[in-house]
Amino acid sequence: MERHFDVSLRELKEQLVGMAGLVERAIECATLGLVQRDRALMTQVHEIEKKINEAHIAVDDSCVKLLALQQPLAADLRLIVATIKINTDLERMGDQAVNIAGNATRYISAEPLKPLVDLPRMFEEVRVMVRETIDSFVRTDAQLAREVLRRDDLVDGLKNKIFRDVLEHVKINAGDIEQGLNLILIARNLERIGDHATNIAEDVIFAISGEDIRHSARIETIKQALT
C-alpha cells in the first residue's frame, strides 16, 4: 500500500538528490579549475554555490512541513531527521568547494609547484564518496554507506601524504611556501568534504537501521570488517 506520505518522501528525496548533484558539480568545477588552470570554472563554482544555498533552504522547508503536517514516526521520522542533517552537510560541502576555488585561484595565479598527482587522486576519491553517500541514501543501502566510511581513510591518507610531500618540498625551496600553503589548504578542503560525506553515511545508516554509529568504537569495527 502506498501512502500519500510516500509520495512526499519521494519528492523530498528528489530534492536532496538534485542538491547533491549541484554539490558534485561544484567540487568538480573547483578541482578541474585547478588542474586545467581555468578561472572561468572557478566563477562557475560561485554560481553553483548560490543554487546550493537555495536548495538548502528549500529542503529544510520541506522537512519542517512534513514534520508538522505528517507527524512521522519510526522509519519515516528517522528519514526526515537524517535528511535535515544531510542537507546541512551538503551545504557545507558547497562552502568547501568555494574555498577550494579560492585557494585554487591563488595557486594558478603563480607558477605551479610541481605536477599535481595526489590532489587529483584525492579529488577522485572524494567525488566517489559524495556520489556513494547519495546513492546509499537513495537506494537505502546501508552496506554502501559503510563503504563510504572506509573510503574516508583513503582520503585522510592522501591528505597526509600531500602535507608531507609539500612540507619536504618547501623545506628545501623556501620561496615556494605560499604555493605550498595553497596546496595544503586545498587538500584540507577536500578532506573536510570527505568528513561531511562520512557524516552523511552515518546518517544514512541511522535512517535505515535506527542505529547510531557516530563517535563509536563500532566505526572502527566496521572499518576493520571491510578491509
Binding site: M1, R3, F5, P72, L73, A74, A75, D76, L77, R78, S209, G210, E211
Partner: peptide, 16 residues
C-alpha cells in the same frame, strides 16, 4: 516510536 525492532511494529506505526 523512533526505532522499533519488529518490522510489523514499524509497519503499523507508520500506517503501512
Amino acid at each position: 516510536f523512533t526505532a522499533p525492532k519488529d518490522s510489523r511494529t514499524e509497519r503499523y506505526i507508520t500506517g503501512r
